[in-house]
Design a protein around this nucleic acid. Structure first.
Lengths: 128, 128, 128, 128
DNA sequence: GTGGTCTAGACCACC
DNA sequence: GTGGTCTAGACCACG
């Protein structure tokens, strides 16, 4: 599914969270699809079950998973146009842009790069 | 010079480092200018001298300061650009944009909002 | 009879119990009426017979069912009211109201909203 | 500060969370006040530091604490009129009311009891 | 089998 | 000293 970089400074559980978010966003994991069990995932990634558990819990409170006790976890239908979450993302975006400017990256360069990224991205539900 | 936000999750020593980088990028601190001593700076910012010391050391190894024994630290001529970190930030940016698009935010909306954010931001080192 | 919500965090066996209690309180199931067998019920609700079994057992010890060996289970005459649990709920209610008031919600607003909620709710066992 | 009931069915970490929420709501803990350290709290309550840690983390993501690395956790200023949180509380309220009705509690009884609770409560920022 | 909670003990970064 | 992360191993409730 994805790889864990034990040497990275970003915590393992964060990597797990990001990995799943990616898979969901990319469409590799779809609504109501079953997630590997905590134990199984831990074995696959060669990390401790508690670490996986922590990641799963956070994904659940974040609205990406739902859990049926004794059955497992599943992909939750992502509410489109969740304005609360989108606002959060805009804030994160702003922070990053500020950090960039701060490191000396020029406005013009950022602007062009952003344009490029946006154009490369496939947007959902667009196209006549 | 700059403010420390105790409540922020970014470490104080990082804030000190960033503060100096910003001042240097903005041109407020110029080549060979003298930096306040560790003790003085700690007093000014109301933080622990150890913390300032750590920041100064990192700024020196990062190529922003140079130190003359018995005299103090000074601003070094800035040459490099932290291209590695900037690349990381672009990656984060891309992930966020993807998540937004996934949540149903339209390309056009994102584009406009980004433009807005960029225009509001004060950019350093840009000539009028 | 009633529906099971697999996605809900309340255990399935609890949902079964609640479902029966509701039917009894509403008067849909009357004294000495026969309950579907464990196997039949499991099939109807599309859940595991073990789960139904657990629910039936708890309903029996709770005084809602009685069982005749070789014949099946039946509705017992309802007499008691679960006053302990209701008291607990009132306490939870109070805590929530306190948290609301703490967050600045006005007494009047709470009052009106509560009235609204209560009026919208369909109450059981109330004569027109 | 508060007691932990090891025999209770509600998880210890939840009890810790609820305990702190209570203290904050009651005004016993005020803005920017320091919370006992994870280790200290664990000792006081005679539970494992990890359990306390889990509770603190959740209180932080819930907006009740803020944390300064290497310094400790502190009470966060609660945003009054946090409409998102208030809406959540109304939903919880509704659920409880439904459960009550469900257990056979009469609309009228609930109504009167609620009125009583609201009148007993001291409301902030009201009067004159 | 599943997830959820708890303990004990360890190591890290930060102040 | 502080919080944050991770591991190992245990027990429970649920299906």
């Amino acid at each position: 599914m994805f790889q864990i970089d034990l040497k990275s400074r970003t915590p393992i559980y964060s990597q797990v969270i990001d990995g799943f978010k990616r898979l969901i966003i990319q469409g590799d994991l779809k609504e109501d699809e079953k997630i590997p069990s905590v134990r199984e995932m831990a074995k696959t990634l060669a990390i401790n079950p508690n670490t996986v558990q922590k990641a799963y819990k956070e994904l659940e409170t974040g609205g990406y998973f739902y859990t049926v006790l004794g059955q497992g976890s599943f992909i939750k239908k992502l509410e489109r146009r969740d304005s609360h979450k989108i606002e959060e993302l805009y804030n994160k975006l702003k922070e990053i842009l500020e950090e960039m400017s701060f490191l000396g990256e020029k406005k013009e360069d950022i602007y062009n790069k952003l344009k490029e990224i946006l154009e490369e991205m496939s947007f959902l539900g667009e196209k006549a």
